[in-house]
Amino acid sequence: MIELNVNGTPQQLDVASDTPLLWALRDTLHLTGTKYGCGQALCGACTVHVDGSPMRSCSVPVSAVAGRKITTIEAVDKNRIGKVVQDAWRKLDVVQCGYCQSGQIMSAVALLSQNRKPSDEEIDGAMSGNLCRCATYVRIRAAIHEAARALV
């Protein structure tokens, strides 16, 4: 049994300890908003927050995050920055296929939590681990600026 705290709820999981957090969230807890894209920390689709920091859940075994606070896209709007980012994404209709967007939003929230007024270069730096095959990047940049404006 591994104990996780996911979106504020303690959970007991009966999974192999090498199971990546991604699959524990998706297959065991049925929190399917966090996506599988590469399994190798190359695409960012699986990004969640662990104690507030962005992490590629495909490359972290559950045993390594036992007892730590995990936030997924399903609860991102519970925090102010998360809500503002989500609203900016909706206002600008950033999404296309949407598959990468949970990860994009989680990374954007993490960026804005550290840096309330990121420049384009800072956005590119913080977001370059999140691939979008639909290439919604123009709007991702714009939505982060939009959220930054709404946060002041």
């Binding site: 909706r90 209709d93 967007q101």
Partner: peptide, 13 residues
Amino acid sequence: KRKDSVDKTSGQA
């Protein structure tokens, strides 16, 4: 507005 924006920004799609 896109009809799928809400679901695709909340993990619900």
